[in-house]
């Protein structure tokens, strides 16, 4: 379901259709969570990471936060041939730590500060030593929060579901 990020049963696939390795699947999951995070949430994550990894390498920004558009594609009839539907604004940023770790961010909207922060967090979460701890402390709770937010939004419509009933008539005993 949208808005909730990646479901537990969704391992994801590479561009060639092959299943992702556990390392790739974990990174895909946090990239998706970061893309939907607010600036405040990203700052909290950054603070948590700072607390665990003291001295950080200065990131080398390869691609400054950049606002652009992506052509949003749809399918005829929902399942058929692809067509170019319309465009959507997006922001991206890529940076690299001195040890070669690349961090990137792609998110809808015009959000330069968020993109820079998310790219840095992406690089930092690839920390071979602390990665798993950091994910448990930052990504897991935010993923749960996002899933809950999406669930609440959809749940608002549940009371508007039509409960059909047929009027009971003589020849139709209850």
């Amino acid at each position: 379901m949208s808005g909730s990020g990646i479901r537990d049963d969704d391992v994801g696939h590479g561009r060639d259709g092959s299943p992702l390795s556990p390392v790739q699947a974990a990174r895909r999951r946090w990239l998706v969570v970061l893309a939907r995070a607010s600036l405040a949430e990203l700052e909290v994550i950054r603070g948590t990471i700072d607390g665990i990894i003291g001295d950080q390498m200065t990131p080398h920004v390869l691609r400054q936060p950049e606002i652009g558009m992506a052509m949003l594609r749809g399918r005829m009839g929902g399942t058929g041939q692809v067509f170019n539907f319309s465009e959507i604004t997006l922001t991206r940023c890529t940076l690299q730590l001195a040890d070669g770790r690349l961090g990137c961010a792609y998110m809808t909207g015009r959000r330069k500060n968020e993109a820079r922060l998310a790219a840095l967090i992406d690089a930092l979460l690839q920390d071979p030593e602390h990665g798993e701890t950091l994910i448990a402390l930052t990504i897991d709770p935010l993923a749960a929060e996002q899933a809950e937010r999406a669930r609440r939004l959809v749940a608002r419509s549940v009371p508007t579901k039509v409960e059909f009933f047929t009027l009971v008539r003589g020849e139709n005993p209850a």
């Binding site: 561009r15 997006l90 809808t108």
Partner: peptide
């Protein structure tokens, strides 16, 4: 309702969701 927007970034070997529309 909301539908996830997914792209295939040049520097990643897998597509990612970047938000909802």
């Amino acid at each position: 309702g909301a539908v996830a927007v997914e792209i295939q970034p040049e520097e990643l070997p897998f597509p990612i969701e970047i938000g909802d529309v």
